Simulated assay, not measured.
Amino acid sequence: MELSAVPPVGETFGVEEEFHLVDPDTGALTPAPALAEAAVRGELGDRVHPEIATTQIETATGICRTLSDLRAELATTRGQARAAAADAGVALLPASTHPFAGSDELVMTSAPRYEAMVRRWAGLALRQDICGCHVHVGVPDLETAVAVLDRARPYLPVLLAMTGSSPFHEATDTGYESYRTLWWSRWPNTGPPEPLGSAERFREVVEGLVAAGVVADGSHLYWDLRPSSHLPTVEFRLADVCTDLDDVVLHAALARSLVRVLAGRAERDEPVAQPRPELLRAARWRAARDGIGGQLFDPVAGELLDARTAVERLVGELSDDLADRGEEDEVRHLVDRLFGRGTSATRQRAVWRETGDLRAVAAAVVREGGGA
């Protein structure tokens, strides 16, 4: 995603998605080193990029301004990635974990950036067998980005709960909708950000992490929400890969609306809720465990809520903004559809219960994502 000029808050947005690469017949995780090398050299265009392992590939949409723009861009980027993968003899598996592969099956991508990551993070990088979905929302400056970060923290668990696609890991039902969240939490540079208060304070934190050797620069700051290091955006990094394209559109629509609403509150200098970090981590854990199939924890009120109620509260807070932009009806329709069929994690478990075969789970994810 490239921005040549800085439009108003939330006017533009875009999505990056990471995918596992699998054998189209067996669903087994399959390295594609030639594909990774072509992506490193930029031979797959500006929409398809390499990832740390040759069993993964990343896509990035162009700049979008409407939900229909985003839907079309996602279809295009996924189509380009599927075509590139097919040429390499593999298929895309759009979920955050592979149902039965082990991290010992990963083969690292040969590129200076990834080699440096392995040197810095050692076994964490070598076992990076998860994929994510990232939403960039345009903001005019770093101060606005930090103001949004400080206000968005209590809302992140609800957004996470709506995207779970990683119930299985290394051939085990983990008991979580988003096991990716738990796996990712092992890194020292992940999780919900603490309140920052100003752009200056954000820079100081990044400088401290660089001095500690935890990160090389701001591009390795893997918080659930961060100011982008190379774009005038805030970047939501908390979501699992959404198998169904509708769920990507829903997640991105809510993230963008939240940025617009929270930036407005910051401009009006409205109070900022600051839940304890322990409660915020508890809310994140609950969302990763139960998704939308149970109860979610409100870290501000300190209470459990039915997941549908929590989601409706979020949509209600954003309804004026969504309505002003003609997006409310579509968002509510997508919410109804999500609750009607469940998350990708729910649907994967349904296939597992029916077949007892994790290869069938992988095949179902590939098909649902448009790969077969």
Rank of each mutant, 00 (worst) to 15 (best):
Ala301Gly: 08
Val48Lys: 02
Leu305Ile: 11
Arg337Glu: 15
Gly10Lys: 10
Leu221Tyr: 09
Glu278Asn: 01
Leu182Pro: 01
Asp104Pro: 00
Gly264Asn: 08
Leu225Thr: 10
Thr190Ala: 04
Ala86Asp: 14
Met108His: 07
Asp329His: 13
Gln56Trp: 11
Ala372Gly: 14
Gly291Tyr: 00
Glu115Ala: 06
Arg349Leu: 08
Leu126Thr: 00
Pro99Ala: 05
Gly132Met: 04
Arg268Pro: 04
Pro271Met: 11
Leu159His: 12
Arg349His: 06
Thr163Asn: 14
Ala34Ile: 00
Arg337Gln: 15
Ala171Lys: 14
Gln295Phe: 05
Arg47Glu: 05
Leu156Ala: 02
Asp336Cys: 07
Val6Ala: 13
Asp306Ala: 12
Glu328Thr: 04
Ala216Asp: 15
Pro299Met: 09
Glu330Leu: 14
Glu303Trp: 07
Val146Tyr: 04
Leu21Trp: 06
Gly197Arg: 00
Val366Tyr: 02
Ala360Thr: 05
Val15Cys: 00
Ala216Tyr: 15
Ala288Ser: 10
Ile63Lys: 12
Ala199Trp: 00
Pro157Ile: 07
Glu18Phe: 02
Ala350Cys: 09
Glu368Gly: 15
His220Arg: 15
Arg78Glu: 06
Leu221Cys: 11
Gly132Leu: 01
Asp269Gly: 10
Gly42Tyr: 05
Gly342Val: 08
Ala95Met: 06
Val90Ala: 04
Ala239Lys: 04
Asp23Phe: 02
Ala199Cys: 08
Trp285Cys: 01
Leu262Asp: 08
Tyr222Arg: 04
Val365Arg: 07
Gly293Met: 07
Phe13Ser: 01
Trp183Ala: 10
Leu262Asn: 07
Ala88Val: 09
Val261Glu: 08
Val214Trp: 06
Gly302Asp: 08
Met1Thr: 10
Ala28His: 12
Leu196Pro: 00
Phe297Asn: 03
His220Leu: 15
Ser178Leu: 03
Ala350Glu: 15
Trp223Ala: 13
Gly340Asn: 05
Met108Pro: 09
Gly14Lys: 05
Leu314Ser: 11
Arg237Trp: 10
Arg65Met: 08
Ala111Thr: 05
Ala152Ser: 14
Met1Leu: 11
Asp173His: 12
Val90Glu: 03
His98Ser: 12
Val335Tyr: 07
Leu221Ser: 08
Leu334Pro: 02
Arg41Met: 08
Asp244Thr: 07
Ala72Pro: 00
Leu3Lys: 02
Pro7Gly: 15
Arg47Ala: 09
Ala145Cys: 07
Pro99Cys: 07
Pro33Leu: 13
Tyr179Gln: 00
Ile292Glu: 03
Val22Leu: 06
Ala34Met: 10
Thr97Ser: 05
Ala91Leu: 02
Glu330Gly: 09
Glu354His: 14
Leu279Gln: 09
Gly102Pro: 03
Leu124Gly: 00
Arg113Cys: 03
Thr109Cys: 12
Pro188Trp: 09
Ala364Asp: 12
Ser4Asp: 14
Val137Ser: 11
Cys242Thr: 04
Met108Trp: 01
Leu318Glu: 13
Ala88Leu: 13
Ala125Ser: 13
Asp329Leu: 12
Trp187Leu: 03
Arg367Phe: 04
Arg332Pro: 05
Ala211Asn: 03
Gly10His: 10
Trp223His: 13
Leu334Val: 11
Phe100Pro: 10
Asp69Ala: 08
Leu314Ala: 13
Ala323Trp: 06
Ala116Leu: 10
Val48Ile: 09
Gly27Glu: 03
Ala5Arg: 06
Leu314Thr: 10
Val22Gln: 03
